[in-house]
Structures are given as structure tokens and as C-alpha cells.
Simulated scan of single mutants.
Amino acid sequence: MARRTLTYLAALVVVGVTLVPLLFTILGGFRTNAQINNAPGGWPSPWVAGNYTAVLSSSVFWRAMGNSALIAVVASALAVAVGAMAAFALSRYTFKGREGLYTLFTIGLLFPVTAAALPLYLLLRQLGLLEHALGVALPEAAFSLPITIVILRPFMHAIPGELEDAAAMDGAGRLGFFWRILLPLSRPALTTVAILAFVTSWNAYLLPLLVLSDPANFTLPLGVAAFQSQFSQDTARVLAYTAASMIPAIGFFVFAERHIVGGLTGSVKG
């Protein structure tokens, strides 16, 4: 009983720490600066929709959202495509150095973006990818590869070899088995890694900051920072802009939560 009580208390603390700042930001966008100054943690009274209306009618906001969506889609597609092929080789082929290569990918989970900031910037400048969506999407896809392979490899490894033998008897080669059988059966794990890569790319700040300096190319995290600097005295509008930039990612993550749980469960069993 005591253990269960502590578990519930810990869960409530986590939920509170997560939701309270989120609610403060969303509700703060429905208040005026005077209301926030008088009672920072108060309830909107009256409710003011003008802050959100101003943000959602701004072309700057929608341009930043479009940039974020484009980069996130490209980075997710690349991470899933390359990660699926690498996980297929690491799970279904036997070759010298396979486990060492897999270990190298797992070590990549510990590799921070900040450690590669300078060489990455120099490389992208040499390739002419600064101020370009691919200059952000390619590194983001690369940094998503470790978690993609770590999730996909055990999932693909758990698929019975008898299916591959049956496919070979029907005339399907290894690529045919990969495309027609393995990928459809791995759909829960593929959905999981695609969602994780998308949300990670959507929320990324350092890589876009490193590559993009033109406000016309800013993603939403950079747009939030620029908006906060420009309207530093208008706290209510800053909160509205921040909340509006968070809602798409939160909604997408909540909608896809069951797919994430299903994919992670299957990979752990594998």
C-alpha cells in the first residue's frame, strides 16, 4: 500500500511539473499584461483572444511553421528510410563486426549535438547548405539514426526466419522480403521511430540556430526566440506565440502516443 501511494505521488509530481508550466503558458496567452503583472498565476478574467488572433494572423508565424514542418518531414523520412535499411542488415545478416557496428550506433545515443557544432558548421558551409532546409534536416536525420536503429533492430530480429525461408521459396530475394514482408510487419516500430524523429526535429533549437540566420528561414523554436526578443515587454503576446508553437507538436504526440507505446513494447520483446 505504501509503495502504491508513493508511486501515485511520484506520478502526480511528474504530471504537475509537466502540465503546470504548459497551462500557465496557454492561459497566459488569454490574459492582458496588466492581469499578468497583478496576478502572474491567476485565471484569465476576462478572457482575451486578441493575443492568439494577432499571432495566428501573422504571416511570420505561418512561415516559421511551414519551415518547421518541411524540415521535420524530410528529417523523419530520411531517418526512417536509412535506419530501416541499417536495422535490416544488422538484424538479418551475419557478418564480421556486426555487433561492434551496432554498439557504435548505441554509443551515438550519448553523443550530444553541441560536441559536433563547430565541425558540422564548417562541413555545411563547405557543402553550401547554410540557410537551406537540407542543412538542418540532414544532421537531424543523422542524430535520429541511433535511436531509430536501437528500436528497429530487435523488432526486425524477432520476426521468424521461417517467413524469410518461405519468401525465398516463393522466389522473393532479400530485398523482396525486406520490402514486402519485413517492413509491413515492422509498421508499429516504424511508426514509433517516425514520430520520435518528427517531434525531435520539430522541437530542435541548436541545429537550426547553427545553420539559419535569415528570419525568413527560421523554424518555430527560432521564431519563438526572435519574437520574445522583439516583444519582450508584451508578455501576454509572447506567451500566446509560445503556446501556439507548442500545440501542433503536443497534439501530434498525444494523437500518436499509442503507436509509440506499441512500437517500444514490440522492440523490447524482440
Rank of each mutant, 00 (worst) to 15 (best):
A54V: 07
G16R: 06
A141R: 06
L209S: 12
I107D: 00
P44Q: 02
I181Q: 11
L175N: 00
Q230K: 12
L120N: 09
I247C: 08
L123K: 10
A115E: 05
V199Q: 07
A34G: 03
R92Q: 13
A256E: 07
G28R: 02
L6S: 00
K96Y: 11
L183H: 12
T5Q: 14
Y102F: 13
L9K: 06
L118W: 04
A64R: 01
T191D: 08
L56A: 05
S144Y: 02
L109T: 14
Q35N: 07
G263I: 06
V150T: 03
A87R: 06
L207I: 15
I250F: 11
W47S: 02
L209I: 02
A166V: 02
R63F: 07
P154A: 05
V193R: 05
S59F: 09
Q230F: 10
I36H: 03
I159D: 12
P184Q: 10
G223V: 08
W47K: 04
I159V: 15
V15I: 15
W179D: 12
A117V: 07
S144L: 03
W179H: 13
S186F: 13
A226I: 00
F253V: 15
I36Y: 05
A72W: 02
A168T: 14
V238G: 05
M246A: 14
S57M: 15
G97V: 08
A137E: 08
A75S: 11
F198W: 08
G16Q: 07
L101Y: 07
P215I: 12
G97P: 02
A137T: 01
V14A: 14
S57R: 15
T94D: 15
L152F: 09
Q230C: 11
Q35W: 10
L78Y: 11
T32M: 05
A142E: 04
P248R: 00
R98L: 01
G270P: 12
L220Y: 09
W47H: 01
I159L: 14
F178E: 05
R237T: 15
L9Q: 09
T32R: 00
G173L: 12
I149T: 05
G173H: 07
R31Q: 12
T103P: 00
F143Q: 01
L109N: 15
F88S: 10
G50I: 00
L6A: 08
G128S: 06
E140V: 09
A89N: 14
I107W: 07
G173S: 08
L123T: 11
I181M: 13
Y102Q: 07
S45P: 12
F155K: 02
R125Q: 12
Q230L: 14
A197E: 00
E164T: 13
S58T: 13
L118E: 01
D165V: 01
P248L: 01
L190A: 07
A194W: 07
R153H: 04
L190G: 02
L6P: 08
